[in-house]
């Protein structure tokens, strides 16, 4: 098998006396959706923040295309093609779609010593990229606040892909969305995968994970409970692993197995 896009080996992260991650290993290949599942407090957020350069791991190594890396800031991670779309921090509602799309990567036009943002180019590309993702904008100057939650996630995904992400980390992209919007976002995740981009899909919803995942890793209390390939595991097994087994089993019994 070829070298994974990213390989995280025995990552540990301690915050003072708290061990948030106690040796997690994880890898993602190109053109693959690797789902990271876990209940609240399992360490998912800490783990992806380590992957995207926000946190420095206390122990362990990060390999990008087989080369060891030390991220000092999110910028470093971005430079090697790791893009993260955070659930609630994806977009700034008061700014236009164009301004959001290009934020941090604004195209420049020069007039002698002055350089301005090239709005013509920015607007055109934004419209085209949005259309590819199935969003029809009224105008690129439209404020992001007028878009639905799913559309905002989609804009953020489109932005990451456009700016050359090789690895896309999606932090609970579907957790606040309705059925229809979830389906749209999942379809876009599939589209991104078909372009050869590796996707880390964080969720605590087993059904969303099963819908697009190629591999599944479950985190519990800062440790991996193992990785399974698609078809090797049932949703029920995943659910049980996430909850740490027994407690949920009793709960589920009283709720009729619908959780």
């Amino acid at each position: 098998m070829s070298t994974p896009l990213i390989e995280m080996r025995d990552i540990e992260k301690h915050f003072g006396a708290v061990i948030a991650l106690g040796g997690v290993s994880f890898d993602v290949n190109a053109g693959e959706v690797h789902c990271l599942l876990g209940d609240n407090g399992a360490g998912k957020s800490t783990f992806i923040k380590t992957m995207s350069g926000v946190h420095k791991p206390s122990k362990g190594t990060i390999l990008i295309d087989g080369k060891e890396m030390n991220f000092k800031s999110p910028r470093d991670a971005m430079e090697v093609g790791i893009a993260t779309v955070y659930q609630d921090l994806a977009m700034i509602p008061l700014m236009s779609v164009t301004r959001n799309f290009w934020m941090g990567n604004e195209p420049i036009k020069k007039f002698g010593p002055f350089s301005t943002m090239d709005f013509k180019k920015a607007n055109e590309i934004t419209m085209v990229e949005m259309k590819k993702m199935g969003i029809n904008l009224r105008e690129p100057g439209q404020a992001v606040g007028t878009l639905s939650g799913g559309e905002r996630q989609t804009v953020a995904i489109a932005r990451a892909v456009y700016f050359g992400a090789k690895l896309l980390i999606l932090d609970e992209p579907t957790s606040a969305l309705g059925v229809r919007q979830t389906a749209n976002v999942l379809a876009n995740v599939d589209r991104v995968r078909s372009q050869g981009i590796g996707v880390v899909f964080i969720t605590h919803n087993v059904r969303h994970a099963m819908a697009v995942g190629d591999r599944f890793t479950v985190l519990n209390r800062g440790k991996t409970l193992g990785t399974a390939k698609r078809g090797e595991i049932t949703p029920e097994e995943l659910q049980d692993m996430m909850a740490g087994g027994q407690e949920l089993a009793t709960l589920e019994g009283s709720l009729g197995g619908t959780v």
Binding site: Y86, L89, M91, I92, P93, L94, W102, M103, G104, S115
Partner: peptide
């Protein structure tokens, strides 16, 4: 300008702005 876009971004949501560099 690009800097102007950053001014809006920083005031709109500093964390989101930081995450995109």
């Amino acid at each position: 300008t690009r800097f102007g876009n950053w001014i809006f971004a920083v005031g709109g949501d500093p964390q989101a702005a930081r995450y995109v560099g």
